[in-house]
């Protein structure tokens, strides 16, 4: 089966400023691909090139087997812009009807169904929508024609946690129906539960593409244990994967790398009163695995 999105050496410069350099990537049919990176790394640049909003400086890009300049493929794509702007005195529902009329393929009742799931009020004029509601309208228009390919730029921004869950359920349904999803985020935690693979982009370069399961094993977590009595430092020293160990009286904090098994077993010998395990943070993955400094340090060690 051919790739849904295929880029080779895709490069975009804004004048002299680098937006994206030499991106070679394939998104396979039926997968959910999380496109991760800090703000300004080149995520939006990539996604906008797939929609032909901006044009590559170099390299090739094919979407659904065609050049993005071919307007007809956009019927099969659902796109949520990163900086979604909706303005005017038109009601959100009317605007969605306009978009649906141009794109076609929107089943009767589909818009209302999505609005209900996301708790969006479509009778509000667009200029008066709150940030969260704008995002909901943006999601509805991206999903309403049940496209083969969803390209979502920071889809969860501005959504409250319950709506985020509903959104993730919609992504899973789209995948179950045979769709492919490419979504960007700057927080791994937002996409890791639905993504099959993630790509990490930094300063305009793709630095890694990983299976989510593999990435989670590599992730660094900050862990804290609180015990009912002071514990000896030796009990935790030199455990595999444990770094930055700090033992202060009855509490132990450290970062762990990979599986927490050894640490948990060590802690289990004492009475644990309280435990905190922070979600791995993308920033720390960068620092540990993809920063050149760290790689140098490792090579040197």
């Amino acid at each position: 089966m051919t790739a849904v999105v295929e880029t080779e050496g895709l490069t975009k410069f804004y004048g002299k400023r680098r937006g994206l350099e030499d991106l070679t990537l394939q998104i396979r049919p039926g997968e959910v691909f999380g496109y991760l990176g800090p703000n300004g790394a080149g995520k939006t640049t990539t996604l906008r090139m797939l929609l032909d909003v901006i044009r590559p400086t170099r390299g090739t890009v094919r979407v659904l087997g065609s050049d993005p300049r071919d307007a007809s493929i956009r019927r099969r794509i659902g796109y949520l812009p990163g900086e979604l702007a909706l303005e005017g005195r038109e009601k959100a529902g009317e605007y969605l009807r306009f978009l649906a009329g141009v794109r076609g393929g929107v089943a009767a009742g589909r818009v209302e169904g999505l609005a209900e799931r996301l708790e969006a009020d479509l009778s509000v004029t667009m200029g008066k929508l709150s940030k969260g509601n704008k995002q909901k309208v943006g999601l509805i228009q991206a999903f309403m024609h049940e496209p083969e390919l969803l390209i979502l730029d920071e889809p969860t921004s501005g959504l409250d946690p319950l709506v985020q869950q509903e959104f993730l359920a919609m992504v899973r349904e789209a995948r179950a129906a045979g769709g492919t999803v490419l979504m960007s985020s700057h927080v791994l935690a937002e996409v890791e539960h639905v993504s099959d693979r993630v790509g990490i982009v930094r300063s305009g370069r793709l630095v890694a593409v990983e299976d989510v399961v593999a990435l989670r094993e590599k992730a660094v977590r900050r862990v804290e244990f609180h015990f009912d009595a002071p514990v000896p430092e030796e009990a935790f020293r030199d455990l595999p994967g444990v770094r930055d160990l700090k033992v202060e009286g009855a509490s132990v904090s450290c970062t762990i790398d990979g599986r927490p098994d050894a640490l948990v077993k060590a802690a289990a010998r004492f009475t644990v009163v309280h435990m905190v395990s922070a979600e791995p943070d993308l920033e720390e993955i960068f620092l540990t695995y993809y920063s050149e400094d760290v790689q140098h340090a490792r090579a040197g060690a």
Partner: peptide, 15 residues
Amino acid sequence: EARTLELTLTLPLDR
């Protein structure tokens, strides 16, 4: 400038 053009541009319409 208001960025509302972006969605219009991604409709299946030739520029």
